[in-house]
Amino acid sequence: MLQRAYAGLIAAAVISAFLASCSATPKTGIAHGEELFQNCKPCHGEAGHGNLELRTPAIAGLPDWYIIEQVTKFKGDLRGANPDDMEGHRMRPLARTLYHPGDIENVAAYVSKMPSQWMPPTFTKGDTAAGSVTFNGVCITCHMADGKGNKDLHSPPIAQQSDWYLVAQLNKFHRGWRGYSPEDVYGGQMRAMALTLADSTAMHNVIAYVKTLPH
């Protein structure tokens, strides 16, 4: 008798668990974005501030349109597809996991609402005076005087970002790992700008200046 009661209990539990899983409506919007963000945490960190060891940038608080654009580029092999792009190879497959309609928009909405943090400089080298000349001569047009970017020009905020990441990206534009494709119009524009920086020193200088912008 007792055995039968147990069997009945287990059956009831299994059936109700099954029914519960059927009726649970999938989350949508930002709540869904929060769920998706769990997959970003191992690399971009709990708070989305990036991790130097893993070479991941801070993404918390980036504008949603920029996140959507970049994730779409990773997914479409416009970024991170060069055989030598180690960091890109790690991010690109993650972009591929966002394949349901709305996934990218939802995670972007959530990440863009996360509090951003100004990442302190790590480079000690870099001539801010020389960098200021470059920045205020060239970069200012799109990234604006405060380095906060401009949505209309599709240029992201860079003032808050980690300096090592920014220099790395300038290198990637320069080498044609980013912005190489005619399909990637805005990436191509930035690539042209990166090509105006003669060498590594020029890159460090301008980024050293970016890190002096008020936050």
Binding site: D85, T122, F123, W164, V167, A168, N171, H174, W177, S200
Partner: peptide
Amino acid sequence: ATADAGASAPTDSTTAQPASQ
């Protein structure tokens, strides 16, 4: 051949170690 246009890029690369800067 076209990608090589970018090969003239500075050599200290994406893995630039901040510590050594």
